[in-house]
Protein backbone atom coordinates (compact mmCIF):
# COMPACT_ATOMS: atom_id res chain seq x y z
CA UNK A 1 0.00 0.00 0.00
CA UNK A 2 3.03 2.28 0.01
CA UNK A 3 2.95 3.25 3.66
CA UNK A 4 6.67 3.97 3.51
CA UNK A 5 6.16 6.98 1.29
CA UNK A 6 6.76 10.15 3.22
CA UNK A 7 4.01 12.71 3.10
CA UNK A 8 6.56 15.44 2.42
CA UNK A 9 7.55 13.86 -0.89
CA UNK A 10 6.92 16.25 -3.73
CA UNK A 11 6.61 14.16 -6.86
CA UNK A 12 2.99 14.34 -8.08
CA UNK A 13 2.49 10.61 -8.32
CA UNK A 14 3.60 10.41 -4.73
CA UNK A 15 1.13 13.00 -3.73
CA UNK A 16 -1.70 11.12 -5.39
CA UNK A 17 -0.87 8.01 -3.39
CA UNK A 18 -0.57 9.94 -0.19
CA UNK A 19 -4.00 11.36 -0.73
CA UNK A 20 -5.46 7.91 -0.21
CA UNK A 21 -4.55 8.27 3.44
CA UNK A 22 -6.22 11.60 3.57
CA UNK A 23 -9.56 10.00 3.05
CA UNK A 24 -10.79 9.49 6.54
CA UNK A 25 -12.16 5.96 6.55
CA UNK A 26 -8.97 3.92 6.05
CA UNK A 27 -7.02 6.01 8.53
CA UNK A 28 -9.93 5.85 10.97
CA UNK A 29 -9.97 2.07 10.92
CA UNK A 30 -6.17 1.81 10.90
CA UNK A 31 -5.91 3.84 14.10
CA UNK A 32 -8.35 1.50 15.80
CA UNK A 33 -6.38 -1.64 15.00
CA UNK A 34 -4.17 -1.82 18.15
CA UNK A 35 -7.13 -1.13 20.43
CA UNK A 36 -9.42 -3.65 18.78
CA UNK A 37 -6.65 -6.24 18.73
CA UNK A 38 -6.02 -6.04 22.47
CA UNK A 39 -9.69 -5.81 23.39
CA UNK A 40 -10.47 -8.67 21.03
CA UNK A 41 -7.88 -11.06 22.42
CA UNK A 42 -8.06 -10.23 26.11
CA UNK A 43 -11.65 -9.08 26.50
CA UNK A 44 -14.07 -10.26 23.83
CA UNK A 45 -12.55 -13.71 23.40
CA UNK A 46 -12.33 -14.50 27.14
CA UNK A 47 -15.90 -13.24 27.57
CA UNK A 48 -17.25 -15.59 24.91
CA UNK A 49 -14.96 -18.36 26.11
CA UNK A 50 -16.31 -17.79 29.64
CA UNK A 51 -19.84 -18.41 28.40
CA UNK A 52 -18.67 -21.72 26.99
CA UNK A 53 -16.77 -22.56 30.21
CA UNK A 54 -19.93 -22.03 32.22
CA UNK A 55 -21.63 -24.92 30.43
CA UNK A 56 -18.73 -27.33 30.95
CA UNK A 57 -17.30 -29.14 33.95
CA UNK A 58 -13.90 -27.51 33.45
CA UNK A 59 -11.39 -27.43 36.25
CA UNK A 60 -8.42 -25.19 36.89
CA UNK A 61 -6.07 -25.63 33.93
CA UNK A 62 -8.17 -28.45 32.53
CA UNK A 63 -10.88 -28.00 29.90
CA UNK A 64 -13.92 -30.17 30.63
CA UNK A 65 -16.91 -31.57 28.81
CA UNK A 66 -20.20 -30.00 27.90
CA UNK A 67 -22.70 -30.45 30.73
CA UNK A 68 -25.47 -28.12 29.61
CA UNK A 69 -26.87 -25.94 32.36
CA UNK A 70 -25.54 -28.21 35.12
CA UNK A 71 -23.42 -25.50 36.71
CA UNK A 72 -26.33 -23.09 36.82
CA UNK A 73 -28.60 -25.75 38.30
CA UNK A 74 -26.01 -26.56 40.94
CA UNK A 75 -25.49 -22.89 41.70
CA UNK A 76 -29.22 -22.26 42.13
CA UNK A 77 -30.28 -25.40 43.93
CA UNK A 78 -27.39 -27.10 45.66
CA UNK A 79 -25.58 -24.39 47.54
CA UNK A 80 -27.90 -23.92 50.55
CA UNK A 81 -29.16 -20.64 49.18
CA UNK A 82 -25.72 -19.00 49.15
CA UNK A 83 -26.42 -17.99 45.56
CA UNK A 84 -29.47 -15.98 46.62
CA UNK A 85 -27.57 -14.47 49.54
CA UNK A 86 -24.81 -13.42 47.17
CA UNK A 87 -27.23 -11.87 44.67
CA UNK A 88 -29.15 -10.06 47.41
CA UNK A 89 -25.91 -8.86 49.02
CA UNK A 90 -24.54 -7.64 45.71
CA UNK A 91 -27.66 -5.52 45.16
CA UNK A 92 -27.77 -4.35 48.78
CA UNK A 93 -24.08 -3.49 48.80
CA UNK A 94 -24.34 -1.54 45.53
CA UNK A 95 -27.63 0.17 46.41
CA UNK A 96 -26.81 1.32 49.92
CA UNK A 97 -23.28 2.48 49.16
CA UNK A 98 -24.41 4.31 46.02
CA UNK A 99 -27.01 6.32 47.95
CA UNK A 100 -24.44 7.32 50.56
CA UNK A 101 -21.70 8.07 48.05
CA UNK A 102 -24.13 10.20 46.06
CA UNK A 103 -25.32 12.22 49.06
CA UNK A 104 -21.91 12.60 50.70
CA UNK A 105 -20.26 13.30 47.37
CA UNK A 106 -22.71 16.11 46.71
CA UNK A 107 -22.11 17.57 50.16
CA UNK A 108 -18.35 17.32 49.67
CA UNK A 109 -18.58 18.99 46.27
CA UNK A 110 -20.72 21.85 47.60
CA UNK A 111 -18.24 22.38 50.44
CA UNK A 112 -15.25 22.32 48.12
CA UNK A 113 -16.98 24.87 45.90
CA UNK A 114 -16.83 27.43 48.73
CA UNK A 115 -13.92 29.77 49.23
CA UNK A 116 -11.76 28.91 52.24
CA UNK A 117 -8.05 28.86 53.08
CA UNK A 118 -5.91 25.94 51.84
CA UNK A 119 -8.61 24.90 49.41
CA UNK A 120 -6.27 23.18 47.00
CA UNK A 121 -4.68 21.22 49.80
CA UNK A 122 -8.03 20.19 51.26
CA UNK A 123 -9.29 19.09 47.85
CA UNK A 124 -6.19 16.98 47.29
CA UNK A 125 -6.46 15.44 50.76
CA UNK A 126 -10.13 14.55 50.35
CA UNK A 127 -9.40 12.77 47.10
CA UNK A 128 -6.72 10.53 48.64
CA UNK A 129 -8.84 7.45 49.47
CA UNK A 130 -9.69 7.15 45.79
CA UNK A 131 -6.03 7.24 44.71
CA UNK A 132 -4.35 4.99 47.25
CA UNK A 133 -4.24 1.29 46.29
CA UNK A 134 -7.52 -0.17 47.51
CA UNK A 135 -6.00 -3.33 48.88
CA UNK A 136 -3.53 -1.38 51.00
CA UNK A 137 -6.02 1.04 52.49
CA UNK A 138 -8.42 -1.86 53.13
CA UNK A 139 -5.64 -3.59 55.10
CA UNK A 140 -5.49 -0.49 57.28
CA UNK A 141 -9.26 -0.68 57.75
CA UNK A 142 -9.00 -4.35 58.64
CA UNK A 143 -6.53 -3.43 61.35
CA UNK A 144 -8.88 -0.68 62.51
CA UNK A 145 -11.68 -3.27 62.70
CA UNK A 146 -9.48 -5.77 64.59
CA UNK A 147 -11.61 -7.90 66.95
CA UNK A 148 -9.51 -7.12 70.06
CA UNK A 149 -7.38 -4.09 69.17
CA UNK A 150 -9.77 -1.97 67.16
CA UNK A 151 -8.78 1.68 67.29
CA UNK A 152 -12.32 2.58 66.21
CA UNK A 153 -13.72 0.82 69.24
CA UNK A 154 -11.07 2.42 71.44
CA UNK A 155 -12.24 5.84 70.21
CA UNK A 156 -15.92 4.96 70.57
CA UNK A 157 -15.45 3.56 74.09
CA UNK A 158 -13.29 6.45 75.23
CA UNK A 159 -15.76 9.03 73.99
CA UNK A 160 -18.47 7.01 75.79
CA UNK A 161 -20.41 6.45 72.61
CA UNK A 162 -20.52 2.68 73.09
CA UNK A 163 -19.96 0.41 76.08
CA UNK A 164 -16.74 -1.58 76.41
CA UNK A 165 -15.64 -3.59 74.41
CA UNK A 166 -17.55 -2.19 71.45
CA UNK A 167 -18.93 -4.01 68.42
CA UNK A 168 -17.16 -6.98 66.89
CA UNK A 169 -16.94 -5.43 63.45
CA UNK A 170 -15.95 -8.25 61.16
CA UNK A 171 -17.14 -11.23 63.22
CA UNK A 172 -20.89 -10.58 63.30
CA UNK A 173 -22.89 -10.79 60.03
CA UNK A 174 -24.74 -7.46 60.17
CA UNK A 175 -21.66 -5.59 61.42
CA UNK A 176 -19.45 -7.10 58.76
CA UNK A 177 -21.78 -5.95 55.99
CA UNK A 178 -21.95 -2.49 57.54
CA UNK A 179 -18.16 -2.37 57.79
CA UNK A 180 -17.85 -3.36 54.14
CA UNK A 181 -20.25 -0.60 53.15
CA UNK A 182 -18.58 2.03 55.34
CA UNK A 183 -15.19 1.42 53.77
CA UNK A 184 -16.63 1.37 50.26
CA UNK A 185 -18.33 4.72 50.89
CA UNK A 186 -15.08 6.06 52.36
CA UNK A 187 -13.23 5.07 49.22
CA UNK A 188 -15.84 5.96 46.61
CA UNK A 189 -17.18 9.31 47.81
CA UNK A 190 -14.23 11.43 46.56
CA UNK A 191 -14.87 10.26 43.00
CA UNK A 192 -18.44 11.53 43.17
CA UNK A 193 -17.31 14.74 44.87
CA UNK A 194 -14.69 15.66 42.29
CA UNK A 195 -16.99 14.90 39.37
CA UNK A 196 -19.81 16.93 40.95
CA UNK A 197 -17.41 19.77 41.73
CA UNK A 198 -16.36 19.95 38.09
CA UNK A 199 -20.02 19.85 37.09
CA UNK A 200 -20.91 22.65 39.50
CA UNK A 201 -18.06 24.83 38.31
CA UNK A 202 -19.24 24.87 34.71
CA UNK A 203 -22.76 26.01 35.62
CA UNK A 204 -23.04 29.61 34.37
CA UNK A 205 -23.06 31.99 37.33
CA UNK A 206 -25.67 34.28 35.77
CA UNK A 207 -28.24 31.55 36.31
CA UNK A 208 -27.77 31.97 40.04
CA UNK A 209 -27.74 35.74 39.76
CA UNK A 210 -31.00 35.71 37.85
CA UNK A 211 -32.52 33.40 40.43
CA UNK A 212 -31.32 35.64 43.25
CA UNK A 213 -32.86 38.68 41.59
CA UNK A 214 -36.11 36.74 41.42
CA UNK A 215 -35.81 36.12 45.14
CA UNK A 216 -35.01 32.40 45.06
CA UNK A 217 -33.65 30.97 48.29
CA UNK A 218 -30.38 29.10 48.51
CA UNK A 219 -32.28 25.80 48.64
CA UNK A 220 -34.43 26.73 45.63
CA UNK A 221 -31.30 27.63 43.70
CA UNK A 222 -29.85 24.24 44.61
CA UNK A 223 -32.89 22.19 43.56
CA UNK A 224 -33.79 24.23 40.50
CA UNK A 225 -30.37 25.07 39.08
CA UNK A 226 -27.56 22.97 40.57
CA UNK A 227 -29.26 19.57 40.52
CA UNK A 228 -30.74 19.72 37.00
CA UNK A 229 -27.47 21.10 35.61
CA UNK A 230 -25.59 18.21 37.19
CA UNK A 231 -27.66 15.60 35.36
CA UNK A 232 -25.07 14.73 32.67
CA UNK A 233 -22.29 14.39 35.25
CA UNK A 234 -24.57 12.38 37.49
CA UNK A 235 -25.32 10.00 34.65
CA UNK A 236 -21.68 9.23 33.88
CA UNK A 237 -20.63 9.00 37.52
CA UNK A 238 -23.53 6.77 38.49
CA UNK A 239 -22.94 4.45 35.56
CA UNK A 240 -19.24 4.02 36.27
CA UNK A 241 -19.66 3.73 39.99
CA UNK A 242 -22.55 1.26 40.02
CA UNK A 243 -20.78 -1.01 37.55
CA UNK A 244 -17.55 -0.94 39.55
CA UNK A 245 -19.34 -1.46 42.88
CA UNK A 246 -21.51 -4.23 41.52
CA UNK A 247 -18.48 -6.18 40.35
CA UNK A 248 -16.26 -5.09 43.27
CA UNK A 249 -13.81 -7.77 44.24
CA UNK A 250 -10.65 -6.52 45.87
CA UNK A 251 -12.08 -4.55 48.79
CA UNK A 252 -14.56 -7.16 50.02
CA UNK A 253 -11.98 -9.89 49.37
CA UNK A 254 -9.45 -8.26 51.67
CA UNK A 255 -11.88 -7.15 54.36
CA UNK A 256 -14.22 -10.13 54.85
CA UNK A 257 -13.86 -12.57 51.95
CA UNK A 258 -17.54 -13.51 52.37
CA UNK A 259 -17.22 -14.27 56.07
CA UNK A 260 -18.77 -14.73 58.58
CA UNK A 261 -20.92 -17.63 57.35
CA UNK A 262 -21.32 -16.22 53.80
CA UNK A 263 -23.12 -13.22 55.29
CA UNK A 264 -21.05 -10.79 53.21
CA UNK A 265 -20.82 -13.12 50.23
CA UNK A 266 -20.89 -11.29 46.90
CA UNK A 267 -21.12 -12.84 43.44
CA UNK A 268 -17.58 -11.72 42.56
CA UNK A 269 -16.02 -13.31 45.63
CA UNK A 270 -18.11 -16.44 45.44
CA UNK A 271 -17.07 -16.95 41.81
CA UNK A 272 -13.43 -16.60 42.84
CA UNK A 273 -13.79 -19.04 45.74
CA UNK A 274 -15.29 -21.74 43.53
CA UNK A 275 -13.09 -21.04 40.53
CA UNK A 276 -9.58 -20.59 41.92
CA UNK A 277 -9.14 -22.10 45.41
CA UNK A 278 -12.00 -24.53 44.66
CA UNK A 279 -10.70 -25.34 41.20
CA UNK A 280 -14.19 -25.54 39.63
CA UNK A 281 -13.63 -23.03 36.84
CA UNK A 282 -16.81 -23.96 34.99
CA UNK A 283 -18.94 -23.31 38.05
CA UNK A 284 -17.01 -20.13 38.85
CA UNK A 285 -17.61 -18.88 35.31
CA UNK A 286 -21.31 -19.69 35.66
CA UNK A 287 -21.46 -17.64 38.86
CA UNK A 288 -19.61 -14.63 37.50
CA UNK A 289 -21.68 -14.69 34.32
CA UNK A 290 -24.80 -14.11 36.37
CA UNK A 291 -23.28 -10.67 36.96
CA UNK A 292 -23.66 -9.76 33.31
CA UNK A 293 -27.47 -9.73 32.90
CA UNK A 294 -27.80 -8.22 36.39
CA UNK A 295 -25.27 -5.53 35.53
CA UNK A 296 -27.13 -4.79 32.30
CA UNK A 297 -30.33 -4.45 34.33
CA UNK A 298 -28.67 -2.07 36.77
CA UNK A 299 -27.27 0.04 33.95
CA UNK A 300 -30.66 0.12 32.24
CA UNK A 301 -32.15 1.18 35.57
CA UNK A 302 -29.67 4.04 35.95
CA UNK A 303 -30.25 5.16 32.36
CA UNK A 304 -34.00 5.03 32.89
CA UNK A 305 -33.90 7.01 36.12
CA UNK A 306 -31.73 9.70 34.58
CA UNK A 307 -33.43 9.82 31.17
CA UNK A 308 -33.77 13.28 29.69
CA UNK A 309 -36.91 14.83 31.08
CA UNK A 310 -39.43 15.37 28.27
Amino acid sequence: MGTAIKADAVAPWHRRRVRIYDREAPLGYLLLVPTLLILGIFLLYPFLFGIWLSITDSELGNLGNFIGLGNYRFEWRNTDGVFYTAVANTFLYTGVTTVFKLALGLVMALLLNQAFPFRRFVRAALLLPYIIPTVLSYEAWRWMFDPTFSVINWLLVNTHLVAYPGPNWLGVPANAMAALMIVNVWRGTPFYAIAFLAGIQVIPLDLYEAARVDGATRWQQFTNITLPMLRPVLLVVLLLSTILTFADFQGPFVLTNGAPYNSTQLLSIWAYQWGIPGGAIGLGAAISLVLFPLLTLVVAGVLFMLRRPE
Binding site: I41, F42, L43, Y45, P46, F47, F49, G50, L53, L60, G61, L63, I243, L244, A247, D248, F249, L267, S268, A271, Y272, G275, I276, I281, G284, A285, S288, L289, L291, F292, L295
Partner: peptide, 12 residues
Protein backbone atom coordinates in the same frame (compact mmCIF):
# COMPACT_ATOMS: atom_id res chain seq x y z
CA UNK B 1 -15.32 -6.00 34.34
CA UNK B 2 -12.31 -8.16 35.34
CA UNK B 3 -14.58 -10.07 37.72
CA UNK B 4 -16.23 -11.58 34.66
CA UNK B 5 -13.05 -12.27 32.76
CA UNK B 6 -10.51 -13.62 35.21
CA UNK B 7 -11.58 -17.27 35.05
CA UNK B 8 -11.55 -17.67 31.25
CA UNK B 9 -8.38 -15.56 31.14
CA UNK B 10 -6.52 -18.19 33.14
CA UNK B 11 -6.77 -20.42 30.05
CA UNK B 12 -5.64 -17.65 27.70
Amino acid sequence: PPTLLFLPLTFV
